[in-house]
């Protein structure tokens, strides 16, 4: 108290606080500036340019012309786009829960430390995440081969004719690759959260006579809620952007994994083989909006549960 009043007394009356405030603002920009410049360059500028592009249409014959919202109107009537969006939605609804539940169970088991060699188990589960996606898909592509691949050998051994590239199985096959790749990552998210739970809580629970199942329900799961929401959002974004896995498998099954198999593949092929950059930008923008809305809804719901 005395210090503060002493300082106040020594401040000369000639320096008004207003000037100091403007100076502080300007300093702030020095720190934020580099980030803002890069952010504007790599995030806002491409986004703005994509929106600008989506208002035009360039034709091989007739050149470039302003078409207003025509591309958006076309997109809303484009069955190929909606089919691909439905496909990734289906993928999301089935694959994401399976992956997160496996990750959750694995994290619980490792955290419980009731198994022998928990560290080895943890690393082994995480390892697939360290394999580059392209390599992982190529590897699974070989495994899935129904003639010379592992699946083919299994088929020969047990006399079945299972083909992972069959139209009715292909989405499951892709889901399996994605799950394999990302269980470890999600497991690690959950595991680190579990590790932050203070040991006192467990002690208290033990003193109260809670068994492991109760500890899981009353302590571990509530602590994991926030992480679970984040993991879900990441997984939703990942599902909507499904591209690597189907695109690398595509050369093997061109008539099943079509150029418009997922929204991202559709946008990619429109731009790079069809030279339809304008329409491709439209697809990208609408997909971005859809993803943002769904991720936001999940976050709202997730945090509401957390508050309760």
């Amino acid at each position: 108290m005395t210090m503060a009043s002493a300082t106040a007394a020594t401040v000369p009356p000639t320096s008004p606080p207003v000037r100091r405030k403007t100076r502080r603002n300007w300093r702030g920009w020095i720190f934020v500036g580099p980030f803002m410049a890069v952010f504007a360059l790599v995030f806002i500028a491409p986004l703005a340019y994509a929106i600008y592009l989506s208002l035009f249409r360039r034709q091989l014959i007739g050149g470039n012309s302003f078409v207003g919202l025509d591309n958006y109107v076309q997109l809303f009537q484009d069955a190929a786009f909606w089919t691909s969006l439905t496909r990734v939605l289906l993928f999301l609804v089935i694959q994401v829960p399976i992956m997160l539940i496996i990750a959750l169970v694995a994290a619980m088991i490792i955290d419980g430390a009731r198994i022998y060699g928990a560290n080895l188990f943890r690393i082994a589960l995480f390892l697939p995440y360290a394999v580059p996606a392209v390599v992982a898909v190529l590897m699974w592509g070989f495994i899935y081969g129904d003639q010379f691949g592992l699946v083919g050998q299994l088929n020969d051994a047990i006399g079945t004719g299972f083909n992972p590239f069959d139209p009715s199985w292909i989405l499951v096959s892709i889901g399996n690759i994605v799950t394999w790749s990302f269980v470890g990552y999600n497991m690690l998210l959950f595991y680190t959260t579990l590790k932050t739970i203070p040991a006192e809580l467990y002690e208290a629970a033990e003193l109260d006579g809670a068994n492991q199942l109760w500890i899981m329900r009353a302590i571990k799961l509530p602590a994991l809620r926030g992480t679970l929401v984040i993991a879900t959002i990441f997984s939703i974004i990942g599902s909507f952007q499904l591209f690597n896995e189907p695109n690398i498998l595509r050369p093997l099954v061109k008539s099943i994994i079509t150029t418009d198999y997922t929204p991202n593949m559709y946008a990619y092929n429109l731009a790079f083989s069809g030279q339809q950059q304008n329409y491709s930008a439209t697809v990208a923008i609408v997909m971005g909006l859809v993803t943002a809305i769904i991720a936001y809804v999940v976050q709202l719901r997730g945090s509401r549960t957390e508050d309760r």
Binding site: P46, S181, A271, Q277
Partner: peptide, 23 residues
């Protein structure tokens, strides 16, 4: 984000670059 998302993002950025190149 998960590398799947990164790949998608990279594709989107690449797309932006190419689009810019066409502009």
């Amino acid at each position: 984000p998960r590398s799947r998302a990164v790949a998608g993002l990279a594709a989107a950025v690449a797309l932006g670059t190419v689009l810019a190149a066409c502009g």
